[in-house]
Simulated assay, not measured.
Amino acid sequence: MTYRMMMRAAAVALALTVSSAGIAAAQTASHGGHGSADSHGSTTSIGQPGKPYEASRTVRISMHENYYEPESVSVSAGETIRFLIKNEGEFVHEFAIATAEMHKSHAPEMMMMVEHGVLLPDRIDQAAAEKMKASMGHGMHDEGNSVLVEPGKSGEVIWRFSEAQDLQFACNVPGHYESGMMGDIKISH
C-alpha cells in the first residue's frame, strides 16, 4: 500500500468516525428547516446568488475526502464568481459559502437529512428528499450559496460577494466540517 493510499484510508476512517460521533450527538439537538433562514442564516449579509453573465471569472474547486483544492480563494467585495465544483471523493460532499457561525447553525439540518435517509454516504436519495419535503415542508438545498454533490459529479454556485468579512467554503455533511473540510474566502475592497 502506497503512502497516498494509506493517507486516504486514514482520512476516510476519520470521516466515518467523526460522522458516527456527530450522529449520536445530534440526535438530541433540535432541528430547524433545511432551506430556512436558520440553515445558513440570512445570506444577504455575505452576498447573494449571481447570474452567469455577471461572473467576472470561474474558480474550479475539487472536493476530496476532508479537503478542497484549492484550500483558499481570494475575491473582491462586489465581485461575482462562478464556482465549478467537482466531487473527486467517494462520499457526498457540500460546497457552502458562509461564516463559521452560519456553518455551525446549519449542522443540525444536515443531520436531519441524514436521519431521514436523504444523505447517504455515497449518494443523495431523491425519493427520501421528496418524502421529507412532503411530510415537513422542506427537503433539499434551495439556497444559492451551497450545493450538494455526489461522488464523481459536478455542481455550480454563482455568488456575488458583498462586504469584507471572514467567510469559508465548507462541507456540512455530518463529521466533514469537524474533520477539517473547509477553506477560506479572502475578500478585499
Rank of each mutant, 00 (worst) to 15 (best):
residue 159 W to L: 15
residue 126 Q to L: 03
residue 144 G to N: 11
residue 56 S to N: 06
residue 184 D to S: 14
residue 10 A to H: 00
residue 116 H to T: 14
residue 4 R to T: 08
residue 106 H to K: 07
residue 35 G to Q: 01
residue 181 M to A: 07
residue 70 P to A: 14
residue 187 I to L: 09
residue 150 E to W: 11
residue 133 K to A: 11
residue 25 A to P: 08
residue 146 S to H: 10
residue 179 S to D: 08
residue 19 S to K: 03
residue 183 G to P: 00
residue 187 I to H: 03
residue 45 S to C: 13
residue 20 S to E: 05
residue 148 L to A: 15
residue 13 A to T: 07
residue 39 S to R: 05
residue 120 L to I: 05
residue 103 H to R: 06
residue 22 G to S: 05
residue 20 S to M: 04
residue 171 C to W: 03
residue 103 H to K: 03
residue 150 E to M: 14
residue 127 A to F: 01
residue 42 S to V: 09
residue 101 E to S: 14
residue 16 L to F: 02
residue 140 M to G: 14
residue 140 M to K: 09
residue 54 E to M: 07
residue 10 A to N: 01
residue 17 T to D: 03
residue 41 G to A: 09
residue 101 E to R: 05
residue 48 Q to Y: 13
residue 156 E to L: 14
residue 72 S to A: 15
residue 18 V to T: 13
residue 103 H to M: 12
residue 85 I to C: 08
residue 51 K to W: 10
residue 122 D to W: 08
residue 26 A to K: 00
residue 39 S to F: 13
residue 153 K to N: 08
residue 43 T to N: 09
residue 66 N to W: 01
residue 71 E to A: 15
residue 133 K to L: 09
residue 56 S to R: 05
residue 133 K to D: 02
residue 39 S to V: 10
residue 58 T to Q: 04
residue 56 S to V: 07
residue 66 N to A: 07
residue 150 E to Y: 11
residue 103 H to I: 08
residue 99 T to V: 12
residue 183 G to M: 15
residue 87 N to S: 08
residue 84 L to I: 12
residue 189 H to M: 04
residue 22 G to A: 06
residue 187 I to C: 09
residue 66 N to T: 07
residue 127 A to M: 03
residue 122 D to M: 09
residue 166 D to E: 13
residue 98 A to I: 04
residue 162 S to G: 10
residue 76 S to L: 04
residue 65 E to W: 01
residue 40 H to W: 06
residue 20 S to Q: 04
residue 9 A to N: 02
residue 180 G to P: 00
residue 83 F to H: 01
residue 119 L to D: 00
residue 73 V to Y: 01
residue 143 E to Q: 12
residue 126 Q to E: 02
residue 18 V to S: 08
residue 74 S to R: 08
residue 48 Q to W: 14
residue 180 G to S: 06
residue 114 V to H: 05
residue 32 G to L: 09
residue 15 A to M: 06
residue 169 F to N: 03
residue 39 S to H: 15
residue 166 D to I: 14
residue 142 D to F: 12
residue 186 K to P: 02
residue 113 M to W: 04
residue 11 A to C: 07
residue 63 M to L: 10
residue 47 G to Y: 07
residue 58 T to V: 14
residue 68 Y to A: 15
residue 52 P to D: 12
residue 79 E to T: 06
residue 40 H to R: 03
residue 54 E to Y: 02
residue 15 A to T: 04
residue 126 Q to K: 09
residue 41 G to T: 02
residue 116 H to Q: 13
residue 184 D to L: 15
residue 53 Y to P: 08
residue 175 G to C: 02
residue 124 I to Q: 12
residue 39 S to D: 12
residue 83 F to P: 02
residue 132 M to H: 06
residue 56 S to D: 03
residue 137 G to S: 03
residue 134 A to E: 05
residue 49 P to R: 00
residue 24 A to R: 00
residue 166 D to K: 12
residue 11 A to Y: 03
residue 32 G to R: 03
residue 119 L to I: 07
residue 133 K to V: 13
residue 159 W to Y: 10
residue 181 M to G: 00
residue 110 M to G: 13
residue 64 H to S: 10
residue 116 H to S: 12
residue 56 S to E: 07
residue 159 W to S: 10
residue 140 M to W: 08
residue 177 Y to W: 15
residue 165 Q to R: 10
residue 128 A to W: 03
residue 165 Q to F: 13
residue 25 A to K: 01
residue 127 A to H: 05
residue 164 A to E: 01
residue 60 R to E: 14
residue 8 R to C: 05
residue 134 A to W: 06
residue 140 M to Y: 04
residue 56 S to W: 00
residue 154 S to F: 06
residue 14 L to V: 10
residue 29 A to P: 05
residue 135 S to V: 15
